[in-house]
Design a protein around this nucleic acid. Structure first.
Lengths: 152, 152
DNA sequence: TCAAACCCTGTAGTGAGTGTAGAGTCAAGC
DNA sequence: GCTTGACTCTACACTCACTACAGGGTTTGA
């Protein structure tokens, strides 16, 4: 199949597939005379595995490691377990951080209920006070990654 | 004070301070004859505010908006509240996503307890099965940002 | 023969910085 | 005056996992 078909079948974009090839995650497929990529079912399987790992929020480096294990079926799977344990640890850590952050934000938010001038706003005051104290909040221990919802 | 001193005082790096200046978040300071930046207490306050907002996991765009409000003390603070409410919404959303993800990962992890060959590993099997089904997990609805813990 | 749909390569952009090269400045000690 | 070391300067490339172009070539159906 051609790249467009594979993209549709895997709910990926064409650009992402080409990106995975550049990154060495997906083997370079054969080409037609007109230089179009032609993929096999093996490519589709591999891409599916990569996407599923990404859905599990693994980095591409983690995916690379997993794929390497998969290509050595005789190896001991203990390291696969370690990889997953570490990953679970990251996720749990991030949840703890975000929960603490949410608490801080809600506390801050409570400092302004009725609308008034910015100069008297409890929220800005609260942020400034925390800044002045050198910030003893959550983030100072090191927040991890962005919070943003892309709402795809 | 010079940039190194400000960096120490604000627990920031020199590069980050210069980056904020380039981005227009921090006003360009005066220079010495030798072209060194010289900061005032006002700069330090501003930087403290920016860092505190970043500790609250706001984007630089959100910080920009907040700073603009701060520079118009007469304005109504309702929009500051809106900004914070939206931000709290993002954080709460991200927590929900990560909790679902954590559940999925723990389910997957349970599929391999005793060490054996990769070929028979329940974890890899589990990921592949999910991939084959088109992945009905969390991530498919759209995970938001990375999980990574940088452990600074 | 023509248009539409598809595909190609190469490059630049995202956010929020981090890291480096290669140069200049400044203060202290000799 | 000279040297050493700490500090600072600009400019640029790199991170991650894509995404979005520009400017071309290929294929397919009418």
């Amino acid at each position: 199949m051609r790249i467009g078909e594979l993209a549709q079948a895997s709910a990926t974009t064409i650009e992402t597939i080409r990106f995975y090839e550049r990154e060495g995650l997906l083997a370079s497929p054969a080409r037609t005379e007109g230089n179009y990529r032609i993929y096999t079912a093996a490519h589709a399987d591999r891409l599916g595995l990569i996407r599923q790992c990404r859905n599990l929020d693994m980095t591409l480096d983690e995916v690379r490691v997993l794929l390497r294990f998969k290509d050595q079926p005789q190896a001991d799977c203990g390291q696969v377990n370690d990889l997953l344990d570490q990953h679970i640890g990251h996720v749990a850590q991030r949840i703890r951080e975000l929960r603490a952050l949410e608490g801080e934000l809600r506390t801050l938010r409570r400092q302004c209920t009725a609308p008034h001038a910015v100069a008297d706003c409890g929220i800005l005051q609260g942020i400034e006070d925390a800044a002045g104290q050198g910030g003893n909040g959550v983030g100072h221990q090191g927040l991890t990654a962005r919070t943003r919802t892309l709402s795809r």
